[in-house]
């Protein structure tokens, strides 16, 4: 029997959050953490969490498993369980709505700040804006982000200043458009980033790189933004 300790909080009935101990019979199989969460929900239907595609594409079930953020649906028990014990908590640093569900408003507000859409003020061509294969290659490792928030909620700088530091997820998307050969708003985008918080709160500890379920590298993207700011200003 797997010993699971799960974070419970229902603001309508609980004065404060508590940890609930649950035993789950995994039948000795190396299940995904989401499977275990479903088994817990079968035992106690009041447990609440987000989930959708169950295959690491939608980014809904980002949770903290034994202290490490990740997507419950693509994280095998063998990767996180130690001494037959699994501790499930909501993503750290964001307000909890209920149980494992967090309020992502701050995260989305930072995403919105980087204007994550293509901006081009030149007349639109008849068919499409073309890119060479080399130009397109620059977007690899940037466009794949599914906004699960595992990275930003593992970043201490984002915990302390979620209203001012854009965070790894937002900055990865910022660079995705800075690096896009079809985007003409580079100067305006960079001008908005040259303050002591938006980009420069990153101290390069790479928690984001460590937890990204898609294997992306926000720290490298942040380094590229820094270099662009440096080139622009010197």
């Amino acid at each position: 029997m797997l010993q699971v300790s799960i974070y419970r909080y229902n603001p309508e009935t609980d004065a404060e959050p508590y940890m609930q101990d649950v035993q789950v019979d995994t039948g000795g199989k190396d299940l995904m953490v989401l499977d275990v969460m479903e088994m817990i929900k079968a035992q106690d239907t009041t447990v609440v969490y987000r989930r959708s595609c169950r295959e690491g594409v939608c980014g809904s079930d980002g949770v903290n498993m034994n202290g490490v953020n990740g997507l419950a649906c693509v994280t095998a028990l063998s990767k996180v369980v130690k001494n037959n014990k699994l501790v499930l908590r909501p993503l750290p640093g964001l307000p909890v709505i209920r149980d494992l569900v967090v309020d992502m408003s701050l995260f989305y507000a930072q995403y919105e700040k980087v204007q994550p859409y293509l901006q081009n003020d030149t007349p639109a061509p008849a068919i499409e804006r073309l890119q060479s294969p080399e130009e397109r290659e620059k977007l690899d490792g940037l466009y794949e982000c599914i906004l699960c928030a595992c990275c930003s909620t593992s970043c201490p700088s984002f915990w302390w200043n979620p209203d001012r530091f854009i965070g790894p997820a937002g900055l990865l998307q910022s660079y995705r458009f800075l690096a896009d050969s079809r985007d003409t708003a580079t100067e305006a985008r960079l001008a908005k980033l040259d303050d002591p918080f938006s980009v420069f709160r990153c101290h390069g500890i790479q928690n984001c790189v460590n937890v990204c379920p898609k294997g992306l590298n926000p720290t490298r993207a942040i380094g590229h933004i820094r270099n662009m700011l440096l080139t622009r200003a010197t």
């Binding site: 980033l193 040259d194 303050d195 002591p196 938006s198 420069f200 820094r226 700011l229 440096l230």
Partner: peptide, 9 residues
């Protein structure tokens, strides 16, 4: 220096 880049450099 009021600027993140300046402080960083």
């Amino acid at each position: 220096g009021r600027s993140g880049l300046y402080d960083w450099l």
